[in-house]
């Protein structure tokens, strides 16, 4: 029964000159789930994202998207298929307005992206949809602001809206709350919850209170391999997880703080 999984990996391996960063990872992401990928710094979480979206080529193993083997596909093609990622460091186009950022994503599915002879005004038909997307992340009043001038939290919100403009079936979020204050974190939790309606989300997240609020299932990665998998209760009760991730004996909440501090 593999079609209940949107995304699967089979024995995924990535070696960097003899160093094994991702070691025989089997992931199964169920449709409609918000699935967390957690683990200490250097565990290989970002590398897994890079493999899934082909920013890195796997050394071995297979990636299946809706049952189809997408291992040989290129990054751009994977994005067009419906698996779109965000980056650990906020990825925006700094010298474009917020509205223009969103339009770049909307334009990706238009036939006109090679039309060098057409006027820029021809892109205005995308404005309405772009405004709706900005509105959905609370950025309406910043539509015409240069992105470089936006505060960090707003940049991340813009990044999320840009990703959603692609109407992805599965969303890969790499630490969407990294470096944010509590207020911004709460906002992002709401945004992700909203974005997850009708789609699947795979997210890397250090903040365990966010994980406990949002995620249906959790995979713990340590030194490149899967340590354990389960729901929040099961995973947080696992002594091995405490050992590698939270530091022995600490509670989930404290663990979240330490992990976040370590990430700075």
């Amino acid at each position: 029964m593999s079609d209940q999984y949107v995304l699967e990996t089979r024995s995924l391996v990535k070696e960097f000159k003899g160093f094994v960063a991702v070691d025989d990872v089997n992931l199964q992401i169920q449709k409609g789930h918000i699935h967390a990928l957690i683990g200490p710094n250097g565990a290989g979480k970002t590398t897994v994202f890079n493999l899934l979206t082909k920013f890195l080529i796997p050394t071995r193993g297979q990636i299946l998207f809706k049952g189809e083997d997408i291992t040989p596909m290129k990054s751009a093609a994977i994005a067009r298929k419906g698996m779109v990622r965000s980056f650990q460091i906020s990825a925006v186009f700094p010298h474009m307005t917020a509205l223009e950022n969103i339009r770049v994503a909307l334009q990706s599915f238009e036939g006109s992206s090679f039309s060098f002879w057409k006027s820029g005004a021809s892109l205005n038909r995308l404005n309405k949809r772009a405004m709706e997307l900005l509105d959905s992340v609370g950025l309406t009043e910043f539509a015409n602001t240069m992105t470089v001038e936006l505060a960090y939290g707003r940049k991340r919100a813009l990044e999320l809206a840009t990703t959603l403009a692609m109407e992805p079936e599965i969303l890969l979020l790499d630490e969407p709350t990294q470096g944010m204050g509590t207020e911004d974190v709460d906002r992002v939790v709401e945004l992700v919850r909203k974005a997850a309606e009708g789609r699947t989300v795979l997210m890397v997240e250090h903040n365990l209170s966010v994980v406990s609020k949002l995620c249906d299932r959790i995979t713990v990665l340590a030194q490149g391999s899967v340590l354990t998998e389960g729901d929040y209760e099961a995973v947080s009760a696992d002594p091995r997880v405490r050992e590698v991730y939270m530091g022995t004996g600490s509670s989930g909440e404290r663990g979240a703080v330490t992990a976040e501090e370590a990430a700075q």
Partner: peptide, 13 residues
């Protein structure tokens, strides 16, 4: 301005 982001938005850069 950001080539990896353009790739991740589906552009064959």
């Amino acid at each position: 301005q950001n080539e990896p982001r353009a790739v991740s938005l589906g552009y064959k850069v």
